[in-house]
Amino acid sequence: MKMTRIFAAAIAALGFAGTAAAFEGEQYPPKEHHWHHDGPFGTYDRQSVQRGYQIYQEVCASCHSMDLMRFRNLAQRGGPFEEEAFPNPNDNPVVMQIAGSYTRVWDQDEVNDDGDPIERAGLPSDAFPAPFANVQMARASNGGAYPPDLSLIVKARTGGENYLYSLLTGYYDEPEDSHLAPGMYYNPYFAGGAIAMAPPLAEGIIEYADGTEASVEQMAEDVTTFLSWAGDPHMETRKQMGVMVLLYLLIFAILVYLAYRQVWANVKH
């Protein structure tokens, strides 16, 4: 029921965005935040992605799955734990250690001779373990709301990184005239203003391995950077190749233009 109401509010918010009528649940446009990976040459801040992974692992992963992620992704080219000595991400010791720290049934088809699923330590080729077996279980544990999968969350939300960052840092005291249902939190960056996710980040809830101060803004930036990388892991290769392709096309265009001038040199047209 709650979802229906949020959904109705979302439609209303979208429908009347931009009109003068301010009412409860007005959605704020996302904050403008500078990202290290912005622009045609921007690269991911590796340290930030690593810290972001720590946040995901210690904070988000208890509710949010990342079904498309494999442990090996963490060590692939452009990933947070990439190391030159291990060109094959499956051999990366950090990732092997991370994967190995989870023991569970990874695949219902992986069975022993009695036909029972095998429980074993994770391998780099295994997927990030999901907190819930299915959508129903996820809803049941979260008051009816479904914590979305985060693999593509930056791409799957209008506003991308800025939206996510705003959402994570956008929990305010609820305005007087709002009528939040129990279990809902006020967040004006969320469509409808009422979100079922409790404020996930708070000062000092984790201690960064690299000693960075874990302020809410810092954590929001890091986890957003991590999720941005997770949704677009080939971004750096893509941009580098793009620069080369454009340079090539530019030279090619100049040569063909010169040829064009030559061919048409004495022709009136």
Binding site: V245, L249, W264
Partner: peptide
């Protein structure tokens, strides 16, 4: 051929901006 070729390359440049960036 050369005029079309030039136009195609220019159009591909715009295309590449979208594909890569």
């Amino acid at each position: 051929t050369v005029k079309d070729g030039f136009a195609i390359i220019v159009y591909l440049m715009v295309f590449a901006v979208f594909v890569f960036f």
